[in-house]
Design a binder for these strands. Structure first.
Length: 971
RNA sequence: GCGGGCGUGGCGGAAUUGGUAGACGCGCGGGACUUAGAAUCCCGUGACGAAAGUCGUGGGGGUUCGAGCCCCUCCGCCCGCACCA
């Protein structure tokens, strides 16, 4: 035969060139057809593509090619997440400039991606390190700043004193910097933050609408946002024991029902009350210092002992002025969450129980489990954290947990703690100053003056009236004016309740400052006179200087001799540029919006275009981005909406998270890892053993793990493409494993894919010859064999179409195998028939000389079937498909062909073969007409031998007929 | 600790969402073609059994005419978050 073997290397390059020359994957923004935006997470240009990329981009490409065939205007772009640490590391290690390193990598990886035959619109390529991109990011930073979505905030950060840099939590290993090995310190630094918490509730609520997102990701985001409802309670501090300026501790609790079981208050080491107390208590100061040395490493947190320090301060129980609780500073309370203070109820919180056991505070159970006796119920070493009936709780006794929570909230909300006051303009605030207000009642009559010391909390909003937390409402009217002794007027605005219902979120604002060179400069100038001044828009972009050195620790932008010195845009005086750059997650939070029109130079987005293309219909990427990247993108899109750059909230309508690529590991006797490329695996019956190909040294076959450089179990996509071709790599990636699960890369599996590609090539070669002489018009009559072939083709078409829609690529692959097998069998039959007449082709295969034997109607059906087959595997193996398409005589490209029209009538069988069960076990089959009535089916079933035998002359108890499915006879 | 997922042949996995369990692939066994190998093609392949048949979706129990799928319970594995009050 002419086309003996499919030469992938030759064909793939050829077709890639043709696609490229004809520009068939370029997407026009003025195309009137309905849009479809499919996107894979863009890669970091680390050097070379890996198998994870191959898997990710293959899936996206299948979707893109199918949607294109279905007549949609498909946007399928690609770009580079090009800023980041590795470029700086390379600069330090190899003395190359981060830009050069990055662009070299991009060049290599682009060539690799092109060799995969992806249907990408390369004209929209973006690199985030390109000033034409980050210019717009700087513009949006300024817009966000103006909209109150950016703030400057003091943050605790991990500081590496040797490298002089801030470290992410992941870069702190056992309390030491990952690079320098220096002990990491906690430092407070001013950082730029994005106010993502402004959208906490919105980001949470909208998750419900994202019905094309994996449930798992939605849940992870929900937990990350971490909403909890509870009560914020003000505990008054005992005057005799508290530091002078500190009057109260605010506590957040989700269990106000357990208030009568309270045994202590615990505050964070960096709580204001702790600091105040420490100023006169050296032992406490020492304890706080120790707490701050605590590492952020997971292991340390897990094993850290729960420690507390009694400050000697006593807090007053909100329901009983004579009940005092000790205030501890505790190392397990975090200042960042809510108020940084808790009340401890040991009986109903395990951590609190462990704590009181250590400090001998005891416990009182206040919630009795449903199955326990309230008279004898005690807590020993396990706290009861469930619901139940209230006990030992005064007016709460007998209530359920839910009722008690509500009752406590209702009472404390009404209890007045103090009053918010508004100072008149020009009043000097004197915390602690003694003033005597003159209070008039509603009728304007003076009321005897209170002896009041007005004190202000940190917000300078409100004062406490000691001894008058339950004032007589006759005298205190909301809005009442209070006259101070210096005749200035204070206005009593509204009472402050002891407790407020509060919603808390775990989500923190997004700190974006990084002390690094290779990132987007933050467009801010610090002026001693004017403060922080935004860079005027006309001066954007603020570009990175090229002449930087990496020979000493810290941020090269800081060391640069001139870059940071500028004139203040406001006053013209000497000023300093912000030398921090943005977190690279900012770059990736809007690139998908830029793709919709990457050419516009005057704005981040072209509103009509971004609104027309967004949201992304199908986003595909790794589960590792389930939280940060996806949440930041959701925030960023909302912030862009707020500042007018886009008209929607949610960037990704559909999300798919694919599994990893894993591979066996191989280990030599000396403990070193061996790479798959160096290893030869031999199979002897059921046993497998591996040796080094070069030396024959036996290596141990280890567990299957994620491909990683450290275990050396990676396979280079280039090698695979070189040996088998891109189509085979793509096909194998989609076979077998469901896309959301890990796929195990095996040599055998790739060979299987390669064999199938070859088989398709032969099969279609044979079919093409038969099809060439097929009649152009559909024959009036079709034989049973031709009809069966059509049915097989359309069944495959229907199934593959459905399963691609569901992204069940592994099932699609199975359907295509099945169909190819069926087609092969029919061609085999034709060959056998003609073979008998011409004296014996070996192996039942048809040769060219037998092609004319099949009847015209069968040849016509065969041509249809084989065309469908090629179209079905085209999204997965596009090069082979083009080659076959050409072989079938098409002068167009299969990449541009419309998806085949499904004839639904062919999916319906004239007769149905139903399984017949007797008492739920299959015993026979019955073949009936498609439209047979239940009565007819029952009659046919009861006539079956197997049924007769089972009935043994009796009547069936019941006959259940599920139309089109099954018949069950109950005897 | 909290939250979630999964468990089906020797292996990866299908199963129209309560209706013929094991599609499809890998592997394995047998055969054909070959001097031989490779490639290709054909047949077989859940277990037990000579067969009829019986058993079979991690274990146990339940609901149902019917359960891999729903409910209860136990076991095992995986993932995410975590001093979060």
């Amino acid at each position: 035969m002419a086309n003996d073997r499919y030469n992938a290397r030759d064909a793939e390059e050829r077709w890639q060139k043709i696609w490229d020359e004809r520009g068939i994957f370029l997407t026009r923004n003025d195309d009137p057809r309905p849009k479809y935006y499919v996107l894979e997470m863009f890669p970091y240009p680390s050097g070379r593509i890996h198998m994870g990329h191959v898997r990710n981009y293959t899936m996206g490409d299948v979707v893109a090619r199918v949607k294109r065939a279905m007549g949609l205007n498909v946007l399928h772009p690609m770009g580079w997440d090009a800023f980041g640490m590795p470029a700086e590391n390379a600069a330090m290690e190899r003395k190359v400039h981060p830009r050069a390193w990055t662009y070299d990598n991009i060049a290599v990886m682009k060539t690799q991606l092109k060799s995969m035959g992806l249907s990408l619109d390369w004209s929209r390529e973006i690199a985030t390190c390109d000033p034409r991109y980050y210019k717009h990011q700087q513009k949006m930073f300024l817009d966000f700043l103006r909209a109150g979505l950016v703030e400057r905030e003091k943050r605790k950060v991990n500081w590496d004193p040797v490298d002089q840099t801030v470290l992410a939590n992941e870069q702190v290993i056992d309390g030491r910097g990952w690079r320098s090995g220096a002990v990491v310190e906690q430092r407070e630094m001013s950082q730029w933050v994005f106010k993502i918490t402004k959208y906490s509730q919105e980001l949470l609520d909208a998750l419900d609408q994202l019905d094309r997102w994996p449930e798992k990701v939605r849940l992870m985001q929900k937990n990350w946002i971490g909403r909890s409802e509870g009560l914020k309670i003000r505990f008054k501090l005992d005057r005799a024991t508290a530091p002078l300026a500190e009057k109260e501790i605010k506590v957040f609790t989700t269990r106000p029902d357990t208030l009568f079981g309270a045994k202590f208050i615990a505050i964070a080491p960096d709580h204001v009350v702790a600091s105040a107390a420490a100023s006169t208590n050296p032992a406490l100061a020492e304890f706080i210092a120790q707490c701050k040395h605590r590492g952020t490493a997971q292991a340390e947190i897990d094993t850290a002992e729960k420690l507390g320090f009694d400050t000697g301060i006593r807090a007053v129980h909100p329901f009983d002025a004579s009940w005092q609780l000790p205030v501890y500073v505790a190392n397990f309370i975090v200042m960042e969450y809510s108020t940084g203070a808790i009340f401890g109820c040991p009986a109903h919180d395990q951590r609190d129980l462990d704590f009181v056991d250590k400090y001998g505070l005891g416990n009182v159970p206040v919630v009795c489990p449903p199955d326990a006796d309230p008279k004898t119920f005690v807590i020993t070493d396990t706290a009861y954290e469930g619901d139940g009936t209230m006990i030992n709780s005064r007016f709460l006794n007998g209530m359920t947990t839910t009722e008690a929570k509500e009752e406590v909230a209702r009472r404390l909300e009404r209890e007045i703690y103090g009053y918010k006051i508004v100072l008149p303009a020009g009043t000097e605030e004197k915390p602690g100053a003694l003033v005597t207000p003159v209070v008039k009642d509603a009728g304007g009559r003076p009321v005897p003056p209170f002896d009041v010391s007005w004190e202000f909390d940190t917000a300078y909003e409100w004062g406490i009236l000691p001894g008058h937390s339950h004032p007589n409402r006759r005298y205190f009217v909301i809005g009442q004016r209070v006259q101070l002794d210096d005749r200035k007027m204070l206005r009593i605005a509204e009472p402050i309740p002891v407790a407020e219902r509060q919603v808390n979120y775990r989500l923190r604002d997004w700190g974006i400052s990084r002390q690094r060179y290779w990132g987007c400069p933050i467009p801010i100038i610090h002026c001693e006179r004017c403060g922080t001044v935004p860079v005027p828009e006309k001066d954007l972009p603020v570009t990175l200087p090229e002449d930087v050195t990496f020979d000493r620790p810290g941020n090269p932008l800081d060391h640069h001799p001139t870059w940071k010195h500028v004139a203040c845009p406001q006053c013209g005086g000497p000023a300093r540029r912000e030398t921090d750059t943005m977190d690279t997650f900012v770059d990736s939070s809007w690139y998908f919006e830029r793709f919709t029109d990457p050419w516009i130079a005057t704005a981040p987005t072209d509103r009509p275009m971004v609104d027309a293309w967004m949201p992304v219909d199908q986003y595909i990427g790794g589960i590792e981005h389930a939280i940060l990247h996806l949440l930041y993108s959701r925030f960023f899109t909302r912030a862009m909406r707020e500042t007018g750059h886009i008209g929607l909230d949610e960037p990704f309508a559909g999300l798919f998270t694919q599994g990893m690529v894993v591979h066996e590991t191989y280990r030599r006797a000396n403990g070193e890892w061996a790479a798959p490329a160096e290893v030869k695996v031999e199979t002897l019956g059921d046993a497998r053993r591996a040796v080094l190909a070069a030396t024959g040294e036996a290596v141990e076959i280890g567990p299957i793990e994620k491909m990683s450089k450290s275990k050396r179990n990676t396979v280079d996509p280039d090698d695979i493409i070189e040996t088998y071709g891109a189509d085979v790599a793509r096909w194998f990636m989609l076979s077998d494993s469901p896309p959301e699960r890990d796929v195990n890369w095996t040599e055998k599996g790739v060979q299987g894919a390669w064999r199938f590609a070859q088989r398709l090539w032969r099969l279609i070669g044979e079919a093409a010859e038969l099809a060439q002489t097929a009649p152009a018009e559909r024959p009036a009559r079709l034989s049973d064999q031709a009809l069966a072939l059509r049915k097989a083709a359309h069944r495959a078409l229907s199934r593959v179409t459905d399963d691609i829609e569901k992204l069940h690529f592994n099932v699609c692959v199975a359907h295509i195998y099945e169909f190819a097998n069926a087609l092969n069998a029919i061609i085999g039959d034709i060959g056998a028939q003609s073979g008998a007449s011409n004296g014996g082709q070996t192996g039942g295969k048809p040769g060219p000389e037998t092609a004319g034997v099949a009847p015209p109607d069968l040849r016509w059906a065969l041509r249809e079937a084989v065309n469908i087959l090629v179209q079905l595997f085209h999204p997965m193996m596009p090069h082979l498909a083009e080659e076959c398409w050409a072989l079938l005589g098409h002068e167009t490209l299969v990449a541009q062909a419309a998806w085949p029209q499904l004839e639904r009538a062919l999916l319906v069988e004239e007769t149905l073969t139903l399984p017949v069960q007797i008492n739920g076990k299959k015993r026979a089959d019955v073949t009936v007409a498609r439209d047979a009535t239940n009565a007819k089916i029952e009659a046919a079933v009861l006539a079956l031998d197997a049924v007769q035998k089972a009935l043994d002359g009796k009547r069936p108890k019941k006959v259940i007929i599920v139309p089109g499915r099954i018949v069950n006879v109950v005897v």
